[in-house]
């Protein structure tokens, strides 16, 4: 076996690669934020303890947590338009799928974080005369967020990796661009190695930052 590694040809595709990286990063940021917001709303609604609300939400969470994102992308792009009668652009379908998938995990992380706060903290806030929203904002969430940071970062990392599935809908993320370059050059080893390196360059600082934050907040 001797294979001549040669990455130099990739330079001529730098435009495509840059667009791919932007799509990957952009989709990660947008769907992580949207997923966090939706997940947060679900988590707060689930804490309400009304079964009419919690059972459908639990069903939603479990369906999205326990099925492949790839299938969810296909459902939302191909099946949802048939059900609701609206044509979706691939990017829109991808946004919806990744947001909801992320939300199902974020919801559990947030709910777990809130539930992990000692009931004595609620007692103390109530005893002072704090109302529910103030108690949540001033006492519970600041403590819960600290505990949520490691799993939240973890989920964002997975969220970024999941954007590679966007290529099935021909959304030009890094992996999709890689496939294009591969089909033009027949050099999959170099192309996919480069993609892995770019993922690593994006994610490693993020996980390092998370470790640092965790240490600092552990106090």
């Amino acid at each position: 076996m001797n294979y001549e590694w040669d990455f130099s040809f990739l330079l001529q595709y730098k435009g495509l690669i840059a667009i791919g990286a932007l799509y990957t990063i952009g989709f990660t940021i947008v769907t992580a934020i949207a997923g966090f917001v939706v997940g947060g709303l679900i988590a707060v609604a689930r804490l309400a303890n009304a079964r009419v609300v919690t059972i459908p939400l639990l069903a939603f969470i479990e369906i999205f947590r326990c099925t492949p994102v790839l299938v969810q992308l296909v459902w939302i792009y191909y099946a949802l338009p048939i059900v609701i009668g609206v044509e979706l652009k691939p990017a829109t379908a991808a946004f919806i799928a990744l947001t909801l998938y992320g939300a199902s995990f974020f919801a559990e992380i947030i709910r777990g974080g809130i539930a992990s706060i000692d009931t004595g903290q609620w007692d103390a806030g109530r005893a002072l005369g704090m109302r529910r929203a103030a108690l949540m904002r001033r006492v519970v969430l600041p403590q819960a967020l600290k505990r949520m940071i490691p799993p939240l970062v973890n989920q964002v990392v997975l969220q970024l990796k999941n954007t590679s599935l966007l290529s099935v809908l021909a959304v030009p993320d890094l992996l999709y661009q890689g496939q294009l370059i591969t089909s033009a050059t027949y050099k999959p080893l170099e192309v996919y190695t480069m993609i892995a390196i770019i993922y690593f360059i994006i994610l490693f600082p993020l996980t390092t930052l998370a470790h640092g934050l965790e240490r600092r907040l552990a106090r």
């Binding site: 000692d118 004595g120 005893a127 005369g129 600041p142």
Partner: peptide, 24 residues
Amino acid sequence: RDRDLAAFRSTVGMVFQNFNLFPH
């Protein structure tokens, strides 16, 4: 309601066995 409970409780101070200070 939450509001009425809060108003009632604000006139009563309570001290707990486990302190329940806000650690943050």
